[in-house]
Amino acid sequence: KTVKFDGLQFDFDNPEKALKFALEVAKQKGAEVHIHGDEIKIE
């Protein structure tokens, strides 16, 4: 899975870790997590 935000991109082999990371970043930024297939966007 790939996590994208602020023009940055982070690749994870483990989908659970990717989602956990995305949710943590979103919480800190006050943003929402959007999942599109293998891509997780924080907006």
Rank of each mutant, 00 (worst) to 15 (best):
T2F: 06
L23G: 12
P15S: 12
K17L: 14
G30H: 07
K27C: 15
P15R: 09
E43V: 13
E32S: 13
A22F: 07
A26L: 02
E24I: 04
E39A: 07
E16D: 10
N14I: 04
L19C: 14
V25R: 00
V25K: 00
K1E: 04
F12W: 02
K4C: 15
K27V: 08
A26K: 00
T2R: 07
T2H: 06
F10E: 02
A26Y: 00
H36F: 12
E32F: 13
G7W: 06
I40M: 03
P15M: 14
A18F: 02
K29P: 02
L8K: 08
L19V: 01
A22K: 00
D13V: 06
D11I: 13
G30D: 07
H36I: 12
H36Q: 11
L8W: 06
G30E: 06
T2A: 04
H34N: 06
K27F: 10
K4N: 07
Q28E: 10
P15D: 10
H34C: 15
D11W: 15
L8D: 04
K29Y: 13
D11H: 14
V3D: 02
K20R: 10
D6M: 10
A18V: 01
K1F: 14
A22W: 11
Q28L: 11
Q28G: 06
P15K: 07
V25L: 13
L23F: 12
D11A: 09
K20D: 15
A22G: 03
I40A: 05
F10S: 02
H34I: 12
L23T: 13
D6W: 08
V33N: 02
K17V: 12
K29C: 15
L8G: 02
T2P: 02
E16S: 05
A22L: 08
D11C: 15
E16I: 09
Q28T: 09
K20P: 00
A26W: 00
K1W: 15
E24Q: 06
A18L: 06
D38V: 09
G37N: 09
A26C: 14
L23H: 12
D11M: 12
E39T: 12
I40T: 04
F10R: 01
F12P: 02
K4R: 11
A22C: 14
K17N: 12
G7L: 03
K41N: 12
V25C: 15
L23A: 12
L8C: 15
V3Q: 02
Q28M: 10
A18W: 09
K1C: 15
E32D: 10
E16T: 07
K29H: 14
I35D: 04
D13F: 03
L19W: 08
A22V: 01
D6Y: 07
D13N: 03
F5Q: 04
K20S: 07
D38E: 08
F5K: 03
L19E: 07
F10W: 12
F12V: 01
G37I: 08
K17S: 13
L23P: 12
Q9Y: 08
K29R: 12
E43K: 08
K1Y: 14
Q9F: 09
F21N: 14
F5G: 04
D11G: 06
F10N: 01
A22D: 10
H34L: 10
F12C: 13
A22Q: 05
D6I: 01
H34K: 10
D6H: 07
I35L: 09
K29D: 06
P15W: 15
G7P: 03
G37T: 05
I40D: 01
D38A: 09
F12Y: 02
I42A: 02
G37A: 08
F21S: 15
I35A: 03
V25P: 00
N14V: 05
V25N: 00
K41A: 11
N14T: 12
